[in-house]
Design a binder for these strands. Structure first.
Lengths: 228, 228
DNA sequence: AGTGTTAGTGTATATTATACACTACAACAG
DNA sequence: CTGTTGTAGTGTATAATATACACTAACACT
């Protein structure tokens, strides 16, 4: 199981910036490395790309192996290529960012990872390699994207209240939004299906909504685009 | 000069979608392949990434070698990773898109290329590999990006008239724009320096302008962003 | 001197974004 | 069972922005 090439090739990895809501705080999934280099340091989950798998498949495999997280929205972010980003050898890494709906399925440490945990984006520890730069790129992209594509819903449960989604947007964008204007705009897009279900708990119950994915696809086809 | 790795690695290439204006038509730089696979077919310029060069450096090197084009705006586009995109072996390609100011420096065929030429984007021939998909992605990105970042200027000479830039935008976006509104918005951004020079030719001379890059950077820092 | 072609300019209207405050309802405590 | 507390839910007036639209100015050429 050894392979010879005429010219030396950069190694190829994927790294994943997975966002989720932990106690209503935007958080990122980090592992603590079990091996050198950067042993014990925090890092993004990721690993080498097999010869017979797509990048996205590699990202999903590594996430499952290292963190036990699966079934998530994943999208390619950027390819990081600095010459010295890894002290071992030349490694080029294709970064993906992901959104998970429930932070329920507790992440479980797997191979290569001493521990896995969610970390609030405003309280990140120092990261290994150039992972801080990768994270920054992902966070910027999330902030930009959330304003013109309805990906925020990927972070919420399938049924949610308008208040929930508003506070999600406030968390991501880092600023407050006007309740009435937010609801007006959001409902005007006609992407949310009101349900006959209501939230339970102390205080007045709020109506639950569901994101209508097929309606979204239809609107995109017709040239209309979501903008918040 | 032979290298052994424990596990097989995908090969890594860069491909470039270089846009330019040829006779006022948005065009793309294509080579005609000199070697198999896809010998004689049209393709995007590109090639393998060396172990000691960044992706952008590889893109610039390949462009210079194959097409003699240099000094251009270049930006990473997307990484293409389908399993069978190359019939020879597993190759992952990082695509870049570029904008060149003058289509003067006639492209000259170099290694790997039988011929190099500009092709209007609305009259592209069939392309080798998955290069059609790469081109489509690049064109979409250009159309999207031109509306919120002033990259269009990279396609024009350093001194240009308002009519020139308007018709450039019309070409890229594929629709007509209102002259007065376009000028109003563009000038309101305060990114163009009016010069005391005028175009020459048949008919009334038009004032020349210059893009003020440092002013642009300043505005971006202050949170203001270009939007057309 | 006249003709043809492009350069250059302002205003009125429609659309969209913003700012803002009260009532309705449910749970819980007493 | 009633009062208190905390969240849900709703409309309008104003400001800002986008759009639609037509004529005069300047130069080159005949």
């Amino acid at each position: 199981m050894s392979h010879t090439y005429k010219y030396p090739r950069p190694a190829l990895t994927v790294d994943c910036v997975v966002f989720g809501l932990l106690e209503d705080q935007l958080s990122v999934l980090l592992i603590q490395r079990a091996a050198d280099p950067y042993r014990d340091k925090f890092a993004l989950p990721g690993g080498f790309v097999g010869i017979d798998e797509t990048l996205e498949a590699a990202a999903r495999r590594e996430l499952a192996e290292e963190t036990n997280v699966c079934d998530l929205y994943l999208e390619q972010l950027y390819t990081f290529d600095a010459l010295q980003r890894d002290p071992r050898e030349r490694i080029i890494s294709v970064a993906y960012y992901g959104l998970v709906r429930q932070v329920n399925h507790q992440p479980a440490a797997g191979s290569d990872a001493r521990a896995v945990a969610w970390h609030r984006v405003d309280q990140l520890p120092a990261l290994a390699f150039d992972h801080r730069a990768i994270f920054d790129t992902a966070y910027q992209r999330l902030q930009a994207k959330v304003q013109y594509q309805p990906i925020g819903f990927e972070l919420l449960p399938r049924k949610f209240t308008l208040t929930q989604i508003q506070s999600l947007y406030e968390t991501i964008l880092g600023r407050e939004l006007d309740k009435r204007n937010f609801r007006k705009k959001l409902l005007a897009m006609d992407l949310l299906e009101p349900l006959e279900e209501f939230s339970r708990g102390a205080h007045r119950a709020a109506r639950l909504y569901r994101f209508n994915r097929s309606r979204y696809r239809l609107l995109v086809k017709q040239g209309l685009h979501f903008e918040l």
